[in-house]
Design a protein around this nucleic acid. Structure first.
Length: 196
DNA sequence: ATGCAGATCGTCT
DNA sequence: GACGATCTGCATC
């Protein structure tokens, strides 16, 4: 299993699929962030191992879901091998299947507003705490091959100002010029990077 | 277009 | 008891 940074890049262009009884809801991954374990002061795993972060210490390919600000959920893919708590935050999707359901869940019909942020996309897909620890090799929630991104950009991660020397590291990745990337000031700090 | 306050609660100290 | 890996609505320019 790849480390967090490799996984964050390789998930771009993949289709994230939630298989519901009502049909598939899916979107192409357009924006991710890598969190690189105990040394990374931005990562939840930089603090002592806890109930919340437990799944990160298992093998990669499982869901790390957490609640933020008491309101939203953020969806992460655990990366790397056991006892190496890396993960990848999914920050933006381009809606593909089940767009009607997403609009209903989000209470808006504006396509660009549906999944352009980590909290928004969890609402759009209807994901909550119940998917904590779910195996992404199962048939409920998984990633599929979809498109090869033309160009990938990197920038500092969003809202990790507390992370000292880790704040400025370019561990946010997104598909260049895609309208479903979340809007943020440090978009302008982005730089083109080599495709893997 | 840009900026800021408020919502709201699980998790960790 | 304090604080978020966020988002929205309202204020002001």
């Amino acid at each position: 299993m790849q480390d967090g940074i490799s996984l964050a890049k390789s998930l771009l262009g993949k289709l994230m699929v939630y298989n519901t009884p009502m049909g598939r809801i899916s979107g192409m991954v357009v924006e991710t962030e890598a969190y690189m374990g105990p040394e990374d002061k931005a990562a939840h795993s930089s603090r002592s191992k806890s109930q919340r972060t437990l799944v990160q210490y298992g093998p990669g390919g499982f869901v790390y879901m957490y609640r933020i600000y008491g309101i939203y959920h953020c969806f992460n893919v655990v990366a790397n091998i056991e006892n190496t708590p890396h993960c990848v935050l999914i920050r933006g999707l381009e809606p593909a299947e089940g767009v009607e359901a997403m609009m209903s869940n989000r209470g808006t019909t504006e396509l660009k507003a549906l999944c352009s942020g980590p909290g928004k996309l969890c609402v759009a897909l209807g994901l909550n705490k119940q998917c904590y620890g779910v195996d992404l090799c199962g048939d409920s929630l998984f990633f599929e091959e979809y498109l090869q991104p033309q160009a990938i950009m990197s920038s500092p991660r969003i809202n990790v100002d507390y992370a000292e020397e880790y704040t400025a590291l370019p561990w946010r990745f997104y598909i260049k010029d895609n309208p479903h990337v979340s809007k943020h000031k440090n978009n302008r700090l982005g730089a083109t990077i080599q495709l893997a």
